[in-house]
Design a protein around this nucleic acid. Structure first.
Lengths: 144, 144
DNA sequence: GCACACCTTCGAGTTGACTCGAAGTCAAGC
DNA sequence: GCTTGACTTCGAGTCAACTCGAAGGTGTGC
């Protein structure tokens, strides 16, 4: 591919950008349609991407990693007023910190499961305990 | 609700268990059908749950929090041979540790976004940098 | 000037995880 | 015996986020 019709700051077609980023071209088109990662357009309507689009793509990926919906990603990246975005971020932060805590418990469980000899999970007190009573918190279950 | 027809170790109907755990009754039925959280059955076919089902439910929730598919949850909880489960856990662990790292970066970004005055994300170097170059790792983007 | 690769849009299909509705069963209370 | 309400199954519907296919436009090489 000789990158036909190269525009100075927009060197990549959708296929080239897909190859470069690992995001399928179909998905890039979808993200463009949904406003998640708007493409630049040539006169003929073809999409073009440039280096400036890379950080935004990485932000989209990160937000998805946070479990954000596409609406939330748009809110973070394009909130018309910064206050709304800041509010969203402030609300999301404790959730993310909670997720980190959950993942730490999960990592402990996985470390044990990787060496556990029990045939069924329920019979192994070691990993049940870590699930039910994460350190530094109350019991994992709402008591009835 | 007087918990009709109470069985010694299986005090809860699907509705009672739903109320107790916060998982909708429809979802409990679905999890039963899919083998994620098998219910005990009375002679009349009605589902019943007991205290022993709580840890497993909590495990299911945790696995879902890890982003596991239902197949993976089943694998963790019911792998016929412990070796397969241990292998899965060993493979999953680095992924979970990576997710923790990602979330830590995300938390930093959120902390900044919560106080950032920039109208659009791309113009704010502070949070772009943290996304693109998480500390202690290479650049967030695959270089072309 | 035509093949061919790549692009476009649009609508429909897929996947995973639910969620709902209909039709029927079961048991307690009057 | 009949109502009432909670239960059953089964099939279909929903939702987000893609993913695919068809029909047609564009542009470069021979």
């Amino acid at each position: 591919m000789t990158e036909p019709d190269a525009v100075p700051d927009l060197p990549w077609t959708v296929a080239a950008f897909a190859a470069r980023t690992g995001v399928p071209a179909t998905t890039l088109r979808y993200w463009d349609d949904e406003g998640l990662l708007p493409a630049h357009r040539l006169d003929n309507g073809h999409r073009r991407y440039g280096p400036d689009d890379l950080p935004r793509l990485e932000m989209v990926r990160m937000c998805q990693g946070l479990g954000c919906t596409m609406d939330e990603v748009r809110l973070v990246l394009d909130a018309p007023d910064p206050a709304a975005r800041a509010r969203f971020a402030a609300e999301k932060l404790p959730e993310v910190l909670g997720r980190i805590e959950l993942l730490r418990v999960a990592a402990d469980v996985l470390r044990h499961v990787a060496v556990c000899e029990h045939t069924d999970a329920a019979s192994c007190g070691a990993w049940m305990r870590s699930v039910l009573e994460p350190p530094g918190e109350g019991p994992g279950l709402r008591a009835g």
